[in-house]
Simulated scan of single mutants.
Amino acid sequence: MDELTLVVATPFKKKATSSLSIKDFEFALSFDLKWMAPDLASRIRDKAIRSRLLRLEGNRLIPAFAIEKIELPQGFKPSGNIFSEKTPIEELITMIAAKTGKTEKEAIAEINTHQERLGDLVDIEITALVVAKEKGCDIESIYQKLYDKVFNRE
């Protein structure tokens, strides 16, 4: 399971709710769980929204994945790597998994199956973009990054 997904899921699971206010989400990460400073909790919130793991409706955060399917490992704590940026394909894999309720491993397998059907005629990132679009993911935030990566090669 993706570390960001586990971090995002934890406040919802601990409070047994399907939505949290922004303040409650950040408070849970910072003070209840004592995982990070409030400014880092805000960064996690923003990263989760950009990755389409969370939706913002009014001032409420709503997970875009099935919280009940997430099992938190005993003694789980996020690593410092949680703040590193994902590559576009990693973001697409996360989106596909969240949208379909599958694991990231299953999302990767589906992308690979599509890639084989295309006979490796396109980059794997483009295949992931196609799969994400087919699954109904909002790819707008990743499209430009991927376009730049694929078409602005040196």
Rank of each mutant, 00 (worst) to 15 (best):
F31W: 09
L56P: 00
S18V: 11
K102T: 14
K69H: 14
K77V: 15
R43E: 08
D120K: 14
V150T: 07
E26K: 02
P11K: 04
R153M: 05
L29C: 00
V8C: 13
I62F: 07
V150E: 02
M36P: 04
K13P: 10
S42Y: 03
Q115W: 13
K99Q: 11
E26M: 05
A128L: 05
E104K: 13
S18K: 14
D32Y: 07
S30T: 08
G119P: 10
V7H: 01
D46C: 00
F12L: 05
L20F: 04
L129I: 05
L29Q: 01
F25Q: 00
D138Q: 04
D120E: 11
P78L: 09
E140G: 04
V7Q: 06
E3D: 02
E104C: 11
V8R: 13
T87P: 05
I108A: 04
R153T: 12
P88C: 08
R55H: 09
R45I: 00
G119T: 04
R117W: 15
R50W: 04
E134H: 09
G80E: 15
L54G: 02
K14P: 00
G80F: 10
T94A: 13
E26C: 10
N112L: 08
R52G: 05
T87I: 02
E106T: 05
R50Q: 08
D24V: 04
G58M: 04
S51E: 10
A16H: 13
R45G: 06
L146H: 04
T103R: 13
N112I: 11
P63V: 09
Y147H: 09
I49K: 03
A37N: 08
E116D: 14
L72S: 15
T127F: 03
K15F: 08
K133E: 07
I96Y: 03
E68C: 06
F65A: 14
K14S: 15
I70R: 09
R55N: 11
L54Q: 01
A98T: 04
L121N: 06
L129A: 06
K77R: 15
S51W: 03
F151H: 06
K86S: 14
I93N: 01
F83I: 02
Q115E: 11
F12V: 07
R45W: 00
K105N: 10
S51F: 02
S84L: 12
A64D: 12
R45K: 11
K77M: 13
G75R: 15
T17W: 03
K149Y: 03
N112F: 01
E68A: 13
I142P: 00
E91Y: 10
T10N: 09
I44S: 00
L118H: 09
S51D: 11
A132V: 08
Y143T: 08
K102M: 15
S51P: 01
K149I: 04
G136E: 01
L61P: 12
S18P: 01
K14D: 15
S42F: 02
E116T: 14
D2N: 14
F83G: 03
L129W: 01
K14V: 03
K13R: 14
I22T: 01
A109D: 15
E116S: 15
E116F: 13
D32N: 07
L118E: 10
E116P: 03
N152I: 06
L121R: 12
R45C: 01
G101D: 11
T127S: 02
L92K: 05
V130E: 09
A37F: 02
A41Y: 05
E154A: 12
W35L: 06
M95I: 06
L40W: 08
I142H: 01
P88T: 11
Q144G: 06
E104Y: 09
E57I: 06
F31N: 11
